[in-house]
Design a protein around this nucleic acid. Sequence first.
DNA 1: TGAAATGTTGGGGCG
DNA 2: ACGCCCCAACATTTC
Length: 484
Amino acid sequence: MLTSSLVWFRQDLRLRDHQALQAALADKQPLILLYIWDSTTPLPQQWGGASCWWLHQSLSELAASIEARGNRLLIAKGNPTQILANLVSRYQVSHVYWHRCYNMHSIQRDIHIKQQLQQQGCDVQSFNGNLLLEPWQAQTSDNKPYQVFTPYWRNAQQIIADMHFPMSAAPERLPPQPTDCTPLLCVDDLALIPTKPNWAGGLTEAWQPGECGAEQQLTTFLERGLFDYKEKRNFPALVHVSRLSPYLHGGEISPWRVWLRCEEVIANTPQLSILDKVHFQSELGWREFSHHLLYYHPLLKEKNFRSAFDKFPWQYNEAALRSWQQGKTGYPLVDAGMRELWHTGYMHNRVRMVTASFLVKHLLMDWRLGEQWFWDTLVDADHANNSASWQWVAGSGADAAPYFRIFNPILQSEKFDAAGDYIKKWVPELSCLPAPFIHAPWQADAALLAQAGVQLNKDYPLPIVEHGAARQQALAAYRQLNTH
DNA sequence: TGAAATGTTGGGGCG
DNA sequence: ACGCCCCAACATTTC
């Protein structure tokens, strides 16, 4: 009886730079390529709506890509422990490979599965396929996890400089499946995309998920976006951000491919500043740092990193929460961001900070409410990044924004969207209102509003809170914690 | 990877 | 010419 090898695809939906696949190819025997929709994932960690849409597209492309190379992606749904055990015994699987995930559910599940498969006589190997560094690789001089980004990243960069990344091209042909291998499900059976109503139209326009789209996005960014990245990445109407986050999350591109191609472009393009490279790479650094934090603080999504925040006097106001979610706060930059998110599954980073700060500081609502909304609506929703970033904004996190750092949504708008281009795109009812009034429509006089065709409180809401008063309330609430 | 309040300085209008 | 005030521009401190 012929044995076979199995690659379990998870957050590594690509064929290039795929260590698990490369290891399986070296076995030179029939190959099972598997994706499992893990129904044992705790509910709050199940992919949100936008991530599901992304996953559907990405899986479909991967399946097609595998089929074109002479194999087939097996798709299953259920308990991975049982599914793997069944496949291993049914197809005489001698070797199983996957790339590691770093949240608590996955870690515990994978430890258990590894033991079980080894008992079945199977050789199991896992690799790092999703990060530049393993989360535990950078440690302080007394072998403790870092709490602050800057020293973490200084150390991490030194390690990266000496690393040899496992680059590999996508194989041109794949070995066949075992001869008696029967399909399980197809991508559609997972029911990941919305049907009634189909709200994904904006996502389809904005994105091309999959390995191919990732490569195109990387090239576009390096050619057009990297120049002056350090400054221009702050302007949401410009295209000077990489927009690679959803691809990195799904593993459709490896972070080291992004890293190395960036190095290469910088070396070959004299007009690019080293600072642009440094700033872009440090964004990848934040991603690494988030995973470092999540690894050592498995409850990062649920619990305040700084427990002093457990007694923060959060308020809950359902109407205000809904206004925020729907982009109807009356602050144009905030609303533009929230609508971009709803429409495209993405929001520019600068605007993420402004909108998040608004929920937590102006509306005094628990960061977890914001985290949940982003988790459900972002195509790049990532357990580590989303949790760490929300805690950073709230001030409850490691290396967090200090409590007194309260973004003024009007000032941010004037600074980073001076002409109002971003606002006009996402809040079209204000598109005839000239700057500077587009940043604060309630400050425009009646004649100007009439001329722009805006009736406040009808076409566009009045601010749901007044900035100055909300700021004072936030300062008072935070002062009450007495942590500073 | 803030914003506002407060302090300081220097030019210019003006008695 | 001089002192005084105003205030913009910038710097520093505070939240």
